Amino acid sequence: MRYQRIACVINDLAADFFKLVEYFSEFSEDFYLYVYPERGKTTPAVFKHYHKGKLIWKKNYSWYKGKNKAIICLVQYLYFLYFLKKLRVRKTYFIVHEIHFIFFNSLVTFFTKNKPVLWAGDGCPDPRQSFFIRLLYQLSRFYMRRVKYVYFTSPKNDSLLLERFQSGDKNKWVIPLGVTDIPADRLPFPNRFGFIGNLREGLGLGLILEAARENRNFYLEIVGDGKYRNDLEKLVKEYEIGEQVKFLGYLEYPQMVKTASRWQLAFATYFPSPKNHTYYADPGKVKLYMELEIPVIMTDITYIAEEVKDLKAGEIVKYDSADIALAVDKIQSNYQDYMDGIRKLKKQYFYKELYKQGFSTLEKRL
């Protein structure tokens, strides 16, 4: 096998999107997995053990029902320690994508002989946002310099963290999120569009609703939930577009894929600013749209926007409702070209090729 022992600590949304589970379960002699619910969800945590590609053990664990961020992080970390003990994970590379799992890594390494691997998904451009963010930022600076293996999903995040955390460039690589090469099963409905993600400010959802108000043939399905949902529902009522907009809430991955397969196009209209952490990220929703071969309308915020534009895999728009409406018309008027473009882009991010090259260092046995 390519790898001897690999462990992965990841939330359920990332487990569905990132293809790490598929990759390491196939190419590792032993692969240990701890999946915890994305923040805001209370589904059980799951421990799994794969041996030579086969799932040989699995167990669910109940989860904290509250919403306190500090307690959620603590519960995630305590389950992580229990995961290492329960599955007797030793002399193993363990991959995490949230910084708090490498806190106290010297002690964890001393007792278990494991090696932490941080795959950083986004940056923290403005630590003054809150006390909690500032605390994580300071701890991140401390630990980033002490973890040997650090990977980034975005070259922008690479530059930010190398500068902010002064972590140097030894053993630091950029590994973007990969997608499957399986052709998507698509049957798009005319004038049906979609959005997937947490419902919060700064995602352009209000602008999308404004575009829908001006076009009665604009039907939008919103997958996800969050504190901004009430405000959006009020806007829908105010704009009198209740027949055009559906809030579907959180969907399990298979149902989400089935729903999205009906969309002509999808939105990733983040507020385009370096103060937005998504500026430094590789947004999972864009890669999901890519995997499902859905042309995307997005703002010029992440590194992949330029590739979307060059390959005509979608339209890059200003943070403006009129520009969003114009992009919808452009894609609909020449739809096959955009479908060809998103398929070309998808081929460039096949996960087996990306991860084989990116994680090659982990082939060395501990």
Rank of each mutant, 00 (worst) to 15 (best):
Y219I: 01
L220C: 11
L220Q: 14
L220Y: 13
I222A: 08
I222F: 09
G224V: 10
D225N: 15
K227V: 01
Y228S: 09
Y228F: 15
R229Q: 15
R229K: 15
N230P: 00
D231I: 04
L232Y: 12
E233C: 02
E233I: 05
K234Y: 03
K234N: 14
L235S: 14
V236F: 05
K237C: 06
E238R: 13
Y239M: 10
Y239S: 02
E240M: 08
I241D: 10
G242I: 01
Q244P: 05
V245N: 11
K246E: 12
K246P: 01
F247K: 09
L248K: 10
E252C: 04
Y253T: 09
P254A: 03
P254E: 12
M256F: 08
V257F: 03
T259N: 11
R262H: 13
Q264L: 05
Q264E: 13
Q264R: 14
Q264H: 13
A266H: 02
F267L: 08
T269G: 09
P274R: 10
K275Y: 05
T278A: 10
Y279V: 06
Y279C: 03
Y280L: 01
A281L: 05
P283S: 13
G284R: 07
G284E: 07
K287N: 10
L288Q: 13
Y289M: 10
Y289I: 00
L292Y: 06
E293G: 06
E293D: 14
P295M: 01
P295G: 03
V296D: 10
V296H: 03
I297L: 02
M298E: 14
T299E: 14
T299P: 01
D300C: 00
D300P: 01
D300S: 04
I301Y: 07
I301S: 06
T302E: 04
Y303K: 00
A305R: 06
E307G: 09
V308L: 04
K309H: 09
D310Y: 12
L311N: 11
K312V: 02
K312F: 02
K312I: 04
A313R: 06
A313C: 08
I316N: 08
K318C: 10
Y319S: 11
Y319C: 08
D320M: 12
S321N: 14
D323M: 04
I324N: 13
I324L: 08
I324C: 11
A325K: 12
A325Q: 09
A325W: 10
A327L: 07
A327K: 01
V328A: 08
D329F: 12
K330Y: 07
Q332L: 09
Q332D: 03
N334E: 10
Y335N: 02
Y335A: 00
Q336G: 07
D337W: 04
